[in-house]
């Protein structure tokens, strides 16, 4: 078990190195000279040269990479070109906003979709099953940003129950903050329930056909004991992997939801930075999100043996 964890941890290191190289290389391909961008249109040629030297842009690429990654490891992601702020605190601020919404949404979506998918599998081809399959296929096909706009239209504009746009930090006013995140969270819950329910159903169907389920019934266990004690863990394992995947993907995918509801989150930070060619911010955000994504998948990998002890062998 310990060896399994160490192996998994070790395997993440080369991935993270490659990710950082990929981000670095990508940023070097962004058109335009960062030094010139930083100085603006009124810069004199000599100033640009000096700036380039100051930013280390005259060094060979490999050296630039090493300098950059060294800084990153000490927590220095550089400064925003647009407003001179430090990049890391900026990212962490925005991450606090996005992560609350994403975590809430994925938790609620899993809590609804996993049982729904499994019960549908257990009553395969019943009306309830057809209902779950149809609903999840439809939800899977609706773009989150459109669903967000529609919910906003219905609950914000016509019914007037909920605020339309904006964000209040939870630390400031909890009740108010909750009111503002309801619509974005509900939108994401609906959209992400689709794939999770389908996955839960598919793996539960696979498990329900296995011999040990019949064996459990032959022991005289009640149907609910068969489902929860014998089927759940095994059927949930692949779904957990998907949930981890959804969680990680949403950190970037949430950009569209933050755009719909005008929330100052991580996704919006990235998109705005891309518009502004604010490459230290783009670079930092991409690295940060990819890092979180790798970590989430790593956590899923480590939890997995609790559901399926075979993987440690």
């Amino acid at each position: 078990m310990v060896r399994f964890i160490l192996t998994r941890l070790a395997s993440a290191v080369p991935t993270l190195i490659l990710v950082s190289v990929a981000v670095f290389v990508m940023m070097r391909f962004i058109p335009g000279d960062p030094a010139a961008l930083m100085l603006g249109d009124l810069a004199k040629p000599g100033q640009v040269e000096a700036m380039r030297r100051q930013m280390g842009l005259d060094q060979p690429l490999a050296v630039q990479y090493l300098i950059w990654i060294g800084n990153v490891l000490t927590g220095d992601f550089g400064h925003s070109i647009a407003n001179g702020q430090k990049v890391l605190p900026l990212i962490l601020d925005r991450f606090a906003v996005s992560s609350v919404i994403v975590l809430l949404a994925v938790l609620v979506a899993s809590a609804i979709a996993v049982p729904a998918g499994m019960l549908a599998a257990w009553k395969q081809d019943s009306l309830g099953d057809i209902g779950v399959v149809a609903t999840s296929t439809i939800l899977l096909s609706i773009p989150s940003f459109w669903l967000g706009l529609m919910l906003m239209m219905i609950f914000g504009l016509y019914l007037g129950w909920l605020p339309i746009v904006g964000y209040v930090p939870f630390s400031k006013d909890f009740g108010h903050a909750a009111l503002y995140v309801i619509l974005p969270v509900v939108t994401l819950v609906l959209v992400e329930s689709g794939p999770i329910a389908r996955m839960a159903r598919a793996s539960a169907i696979e498990v329900s056909r296995l011999e040990y389920i019949t064996h459990a019934r032959a022991k005289g266990l009640s149907e609910s004991a068969v489902i929860w004690r014998h089927a759940f863990k095994n059927a949930f394992a692949p779904t957990l992997t998907l949930i981890g995947f959804v969680l990680g993907s949403l950190l970037a995918g949430i950009a569209v939801i933050e755009t719909v509801f005008t929330i100052p989150g991580l996704g919006r930070l990235l998109v705005d930075a891309i518009y502004a060619r604010d490459y230290p911010v783009v670079q930092g955000t991409m690295l940060f999100v990819a890092f979180i994504y790798v970590v989430v998948n790593l956590i899923v990998d480590m939890v997995y043996p609790l559901l399926d002890p075979r993987v440690t062998a």
Partner: peptide, 24 residues
Amino acid sequence: MMVNDAFLAFPGLLLALGLMAVIG
């Protein structure tokens, strides 16, 4: 597979966003 896994370590839309920043 090493290069491929590095690409897979980015969530799909993030990689697309980054590439759009490069390509325009």
